[in-house]
């Protein structure tokens, strides 16, 4: 579904992603794990089209999208739930969702909205509330929901567990897993929370300072000496 080939990305002269390559297959959950500053957010932003890439290719459903703009990629079926539950703070919860559905028609919007409210009933209770006043957990739920409203085929998530209580983390990961199992949605998940990320992933990759360290199934990664030292030691 998504193929990234030898991606190189810079901030001015700072080389942030170095020859990153991987493939996410249809219907799978692919996790990318790395410490602070490893380049995870930059990678997702590059795939979404919010950050120019210097070199390399991004192929989505067989189409080279490396030079497409973000809104064009959104129309093709790529979606991103931003880091830190970033949503439109001055809009209401429902307006955030409506915006996510900017490119779909009214009937499908209503249907989609019901689907989202079933996933996160708490959002329905707060639909008229200004999104900036939501709690951290609710904001994260809204961020994921906004990204789901675009009817994506590939949903990218940037640290959905960050800063949340363990109970809410478990709730959110359950929803993600269910989404993948029930609707076949492909997920590209970026996390520092190694345990949670590997628990639901089919395959994963570890990056460090912009380089790939290792990749494989969760079991393979959990037995990798380097990873154990860096993250689980």
């Amino acid at each position: 579904m998504l193929r990234v080939e030898k991606l190189n990305v810079y901030y001015d002269r700072l080389h942030v992603l170095k020859d990153i390559s991987f493939e996410v297959k249809e219907g799978e959950i692919f996790s990318i794990i790395g410490a602070n500053g490893a380049g995870k957010t930059t990678l997702l932003r590059s795939i979404m089209g919010l950050k120019d890439v210097a070199d390399g290719k991004i192929i989505f459903k067989g189409k080279d999208i490396t030079r497409l703009k973000a809104h064009e990629r959104a129309s093709l079926g790529i979606s991103l739930s931003f880091e830190g539950g970033r949503i439109l703070r001055t809009l209401t919860v429902e307006e955030n969702l409506r915006l996510g559905a900017y490119r779909i028609d009214k009937d499908r919007f209503e249907e989609r909205l019901r689907f989202i409210y079933k996933l996160f009933p708490r959002l329905e209770e707060r639909k008229k509330q200004i999104a900036g006043s939501l709690s951290g957990g609710e904001r994260q739920m809204l961020s994921i929901s906004r990204a789901l409203m675009t009817e994506p085929e590939l949903l990218m998530l940037d640290e959905p567990s960050f800063g949340l209580a363990p109970k809410i983390v478990i709730e959110i990961f359950q929803v993600l897993k269910k989404l993948n199992e029930d609707t076949g949605l492909t997920l590209l998940l970026v996390e520092q929370n190694v345990k949670q990320a590997l628990k639901i992933a089919h395959r994963a990759m570890v990056i460090e300072a912009g380089y790939e360290v290792t990749r494989g199934t969760p079991d393979e990664i959990l037995t990798n000496k380097e990873v154990i030292e860096a993250y689980l030691g």
Binding site: G49, L50, A70, H71, A74, S79, R86, L88, Y102, R146
Partner: peptide, 22 residues
């Protein structure tokens, strides 16, 4: 709808773009 997009772009341009807004 276009007004919603205007409010969204002025709130956070990148989130708006990722939602499919030009």
């Amino acid at each position: 709808k276009v007004g919603l997009a205007m409010r969204a772009v002025s709130d956070d341009k990148e989130v708006a773009e990722a939602s499919g807004i030009d």
